[in-house]
């Protein structure tokens, strides 16, 4: 049992957990996100798009790692562009970067504990939260192993554990399914559905099947702009027989992309 603070029970005053208006973000000199409008609420949102669409750059901007070059970005009702104080927002963030670095000498538990400390969790809650996070990703039997001894899929799961350790309100997972075997991917989908109940999860992936199976909402990007936002069922109906792809969802994906490219080309 724990004490619930007044801040936790206060009603939210923001309509969207993540809200971007005309967002522009640079990756180096290149404008990777160019005028993106996006509004996300609670649920699991799958972020799809071809390579170089700006998915990772968008994730970095949402994780407050890079500063937006223009437009408006609001997370949890607080503006995060310019010189805003990011500490409050960052406490509610969970982020798994695409190339996620770690300290190889740390054990899994030390790594997740260190991240929990960096996320300013109350000291008394840390051990329990760390154990719960490690169990949720199925790494409990390897909690004492050093990070450098883990396989690629296990590292990915350790990364997911550190992202969810603080029960974030905004969870950003950049290609979390890379390196997971089919069984682990099924477990991961289960975890996603579980997390999406009271959290805004944004999952970037190339696997259309994952999105259809586990997401409540599909967000599609191309060349830094929003192409499509809708439900997975709606994505499936977008595709016709003539479109490329082996499943209805893949056909929907390629149909949308082709239509967008044709419009942009005109």
């Amino acid at each position: 049992m724990r004490t619930v603070s007044a801040a936790e029970t206060a009603p939210t005053t923001h309509p969207w957990v993540v809200h971007a208006e005309g967002l522009r973000v640079r990756a180096g000199r290149h404008l990777a996100v160019d005028g993106l409008d996006l509004a996300l609420g609670t649920g699991v949102h799958g972020l799809l798009g071809p390579n170089g669409a700006g998915k990772t750059t968008l994730m970095r901007a949402l994780a407050t790692v890079v500063e937006p070059a223009g437009g408006k970005l609001t997370l949890l009702g607080e503006s995060v562009d310019g010189r805003a104080d990011l500490r409050r927002v960052r406490r509610g963030l969970g982020y798994l970067p695409q190339q996620f670095g770690f300290y190889p000498r740390f054990t899994v538990r030390e790594f997740v504990e260190y991240m929990a400390w960096l996320k300013e969790m109350p000291k008394t809650l840390v051990p329990g939260a760390v154990q719960r996070a490690i169990e949720r990703v199925g790494l409990a039997d390897r909690a004492g192993s050093r990070m450098k001894t883990l396989s690629g899929g296990m590292l990915r799961r350790a990364g997911i554990a550190q992202a969810i350790v603080n029960d974030p309100a905004v969870l950003l997972l950049d290609e979390p399914t890379v390196g997971l075997d089919p069984e682990q991917r099924l477990d991961f989908r289960e975890l996603l559905r579980d997390l999406g109940v009271d959290c805004c999860v944004l999952v970037s992936t190339h696997l259309v099947e994952d999105v259809v199976a586990a997401c409540t909402d599909v967000v599609m990007m191309n060349e830094g702009r929003l192409v499509y936002q809708g439900t997975p069922d709606d994505l499936v109906t977008q595709g016709g027989e003539g479109d490329a792809g082996d499943s209805p969802a893949e056909r929907g994906y390629s149909a949308l992309l082709r239509r967008h490219r044709a419009e942009a080309g005109r």
Partner: peptide
Amino acid sequence: SDPAWELVASTPTAG
């Protein structure tokens, strides 16, 4: 030189 800089940069302690 900090392998976990991206992870650290998104936390409230960073700064």
